Amino acid sequence: MKANILNRVIKTLIFAFLCISCSSDLDFDQVNDLKLEPVFVANLAHFNVPANQFAVNGQAQQIASDVVDFDAFRKKFFNENLVKAELNFEIENTINRAFTLNILLLNDNDEVLQTIPLVIPAYSGSSNVIKYPTEVFENERLVLLKQTTKVGFLIQVASGPPIDENSLGNLKLRSSATVYMEIE
């Protein structure tokens, strides 16, 4: 019986202690001061064009082009919270010709908003991987980037040895984007 009374007293003291424990007022307005600054890295574009694709009907083409849709900025959340973007480009050329790659950022009316020119030296037998300086988009340049709905790739072939359907080598592009967001 004594154990039962002692057990009740201990339970009562613990309950009383829990009822009078320390507490403070919670400030739920702190959520209004919340500011998230996530950074995302993603693949942007890539291609691998064999040398023989620069020849059509046995004749070398001086210009090759392609346009692809780019709908990242159509998403309101992404468009409103993006504060900075960095584009990185790496090209490997194993074709014995030099090239110029113009990356065209286009709007809905196919108007060129920005051109990013990349000069590509001819392959000379050793590694020919070129990492270009990062293209940074902030302020006014970022405003133009946000209007981009299509990306065009315009490859101009420099003069040099003939290219035909038996030509060897490839022109490879790898690119990535690092985007900085601010969410309040």
Rank of each mutant, 00 (worst) to 15 (best):
R74S: 12
N96P: 11
K2G: 14
N52T: 06
N109E: 15
T134W: 00
V157I: 08
N96G: 11
F77M: 09
L36M: 10
L106S: 00
R8W: 12
R97E: 01
V31A: 10
L6F: 08
V157H: 02
A64R: 09
E165H: 10
F153Q: 03
V157Q: 02
F40S: 12
A55D: 02
V151C: 05
Q62E: 09
A64T: 10
S159R: 14
P162S: 12
F17H: 10
F17S: 15
E165Y: 07
L104A: 03
K11N: 09
G160T: 06
N93R: 02
L13C: 05
S24F: 11
F137P: 00
P161M: 12
Q53E: 10
A98D: 04
D29I: 02
N170W: 03
R8D: 07
L26C: 11
K172Q: 10
A177P: 02
N43R: 09
E37L: 11
M181Y: 06
L154Q: 10
N81A: 02
V112W: 04
K150W: 05
V151S: 05
A55R: 03
V83K: 07
A72I: 09
L6S: 06
P121G: 08
V9G: 03
I155S: 00
D164A: 08
L36C: 07
E135T: 07
T134A: 05
V83W: 02
G58C: 08
I5T: 09
P117M: 05
P38F: 08
V119L: 08
D108A: 15
L113N: 07
D71K: 14
P121K: 10
N93F: 01
H46K: 12
P133Q: 06
D25S: 14
Q53R: 11
S65Y: 15
T149D: 04
I5Q: 11
E165V: 08
A72Y: 13
K35F: 12
I14R: 05
D108S: 15
E140T: 12
I10Y: 08
N128V: 04
F153M: 05
V129E: 09
E184W: 08
F99N: 00
I63W: 09
F89S: 00
Q30R: 15
S167G: 05
S176G: 12
N96K: 12
L142H: 01
I95Q: 01
N7P: 03
L173A: 03
F15R: 05
R8A: 11
L26T: 15
H46M: 10
F78V: 09
F73R: 02
L168D: 15
S124F: 06
I130S: 06
S24N: 10
G58Y: 10
N81S: 11
S124A: 13
D69N: 15
A72L: 15
S65P: 03
L101D: 00
V179L: 09
V56K: 11
L171V: 07
F15V: 14
D29A: 12
V83R: 04
S126V: 10
F47L: 04
S167M: 06
